[in-house]
């Protein structure tokens, strides 16, 4: 198997568009209800935010997870073989409250859905 080289430029990009352009040569996203992103509403720890992405889109080539307001938004990309099911889960670092976006590449197009994750100072309680 031939593995793609680590996409340095995409990981160092400072915006969602430039990261996606660098990674996949495009940044046009089409919203999709065939993607479900799961992440906590409020992060227990901004340094460890569990995120999972599940999609029923056919022939997924890759899934990327982007934290919109991170300095470098691209957190990770997953290249799927034909035998992989449309599901990945990991844990990411988030610098502040932000939308987390799942980008699914299939049939040459990019589909996406997002979820707001709040990163809070904490304290207080009932």
């Amino acid at each position: 198997t031939v593995l793609a080289a680590w996409p340095k430029e995409a990981f160092e990009a400072n915006s969602v568009d430039s990261a996606l352009n660098s990674l996949m040569g495009q940044s046009q996203l089409e919203g999709s209800d065939k993607i479900e992103i799961k992440a906590p509403d409020i992060a227990e720890n901004g340094a460890v935010v569990p995120v999972s992405v599940e999609t029923s889109i056919d022939d997924v080539e890759s899934i990327s997870i982007v934290a919109e307001k991170n300095n470098t938004p691209l957190t990770s990309a997953y290249v799927m073989s034909p035998r992989a099911e449309g599901f990945v889960a990991t844990r990411i670092k988030m610098s502040e409250t932000s939308s987390v976006i799942a980008v699914v590449k299939a049939g040459g197009s990019l589909y996406s859905t997002g979820k707001e994750v709040k990163v809070t100072i904490g304290g207080c309680g009932g």
Binding site: F11, V49, N70, L74, V79, R83, V88, T90, I92
Partner: peptide
């Protein structure tokens, strides 16, 4: 067969 290849940046925990 490489069933999955993850590319990670430093924002993985």
């Amino acid at each position: 067969d490489a069933v999955l290849t993850a590319q990670w940046g430093p924002a993985i925990s």
